[in-house]
Amino acid sequence: MSAATPETGYNFAYLDEGTKRMIRRAILKAIAIPGYQVPFASREMPMPYGWGTGGVQVTAAILGKRDVLKVIDQGSDDTTNAVSIRAFFARTADVAVTTRTRDATVIQTRHRIPEAPLHEGQVLVYQVPIPEPLRFLEPRETETRQLHALAEYGLMHVKLYEDIARHGHIATTYAYPVEVAGRYVMDPSPTPKFDNPKMDDCPALQLFGAGREKRIYAVPPHTRVRSLDFEDHPFRVQSFDTPCALCGAEGVYLDEVLLDDAGKRMFVCSDTDHCEERRADGHVGTGGMETAHV
């Protein structure tokens, strides 16, 4: 990776040690109560809200000198958000960075879980815009806290009911609510529901940081994560008709890429690292232009 020049004059990983300790306390509490949203004193970061200030603070708090950092944005290692956050930590913490999922010890992500299976010792840090899964049904924070405290989650099913009533099936495709360890209902951040099954019994630690909303929550390794559904409308992930046009991978999440003004398009792996590794191994896609159903 491009070696950024380390900055001087900043504390390791930008945040001061007091702040990092505060965030670590919140993280420990979050791990102790899986799925529970722990308030924390979110700091101003040198980037706007919505660009991952929550995830960056969590990453800054857990990063050590020997960590290897990977940052993805919608599965991609080379979009603006991913590149700038990776450069930020390369400069302020002088840590090694990588795009390879299996080499990374800390993976900060916006909206995807890597296709390659995560392993023990890895930490996945999610950037979360709105941590409250009940927010759009119940605007009062005082009330949603009560609902969580008393595990009254009927309202969450009202949302799924509305989906089926309107669309004939559960049409929520991202930020699909999950129940963690049989207790708290949690918003898995705007990852596609395609990734929900990967959260279940995941060997890696999953941390969620919401900077603007000042909340941290967590799913410890090997925790039961169940997507909510109805008995007669069970949870199902999207499926794609065609494999990746570049590497031929099946059963992965695909992005639609427009190729020209005439509407020519192709579907390729959203996880760029996964796609590149497969191509390096000799897998070749059709370059086909068929359509996919989401």
Binding site: G154, L155, V158, Y161, E162, I164, A165, F230, E231, D232
Partner: peptide
């Protein structure tokens, strides 16, 4: 709940009480 359909409004209490079968609730 003004943003929720009539069926959802009636079904909310049932779902709150643990009903998880869409067809029955509806």
């Amino acid at each position: 709940r003004m943003a929720v359909s009539a069926g959802g409004n009636v079904g909310e209490r049932l779902m709150g009480a643990g009903a998880r079968h869409y067809g029955t609730i509806r």
